[in-house]
Amino acid sequence: MDKSKSEILDQISELIITGNYKLIVEITQKALDNDLSSDEILNSGLLKGMEIVGIKFRDGLIFLPEVLMSARAFKAAMNIIEPLLIKDTKSNKSGIGKVLLGTVKGDIHDIGKNLVGIMLKGNGFNVVDIGVDTSTEKFIDAVDKECPDIVGLSAMLTTTMISMQKTVQALKEKFQNKIIIVGGAPVSQSFADEIGANGYAKNAIEAVELCKKLLAIKN
């Protein structure tokens, strides 16, 4: 790749990291005008930037506001390249995996779940969000219909941890090999292990890493 092309991709990564959701629109267009493919822009620009965002968040160098601005910049760039990605056969596999998200029965909290959705999308996952106060039946129907690679359950309250346990057990019985991950303020790794979930993530960034890891193991 010539120097000017790689410079544009580096600039796109940088605009993701700084969350510059206005300038990234212009530069993404410039990248396309310079014959960079949508695939290159996604993988060597946008996703590369989001990966660094994840590392900075993990290390406590940036926090939620910065991450959200990066996600916004990602979305702005995706609006431009998404229609092209679908045409591009090379990357036409609807993201790197499909994740179905929901908050469990009896719980209407959704900030955490929504953040996980934003970050997964911002890292190339296809996300289906089935909302809050979701019954076990609704989870089962949605998994049947959507066939996700991973199901993510969220709970914010101590009581709804029991709902989470019930839903996880029912999903495990119905779909033996489905990967299930859990999260939420009262949830911990030991709780996740106890109820038979395949994984737990402490925050939205860790959820992305977890999904990548679990899919890598599966594939």
């Binding site: 101590t158 009581t159 941890m161 346990q165 009262p186 911990s188 030991s190 709780f191």
Partner: peptide
């Protein structure tokens, strides 16, 4: 602390 599941109870 962070809640745990013990014998079916939180």
């Amino acid at each position: 602390g962070i809640p745990e599941l013990k014998d079916g109870n939180i």
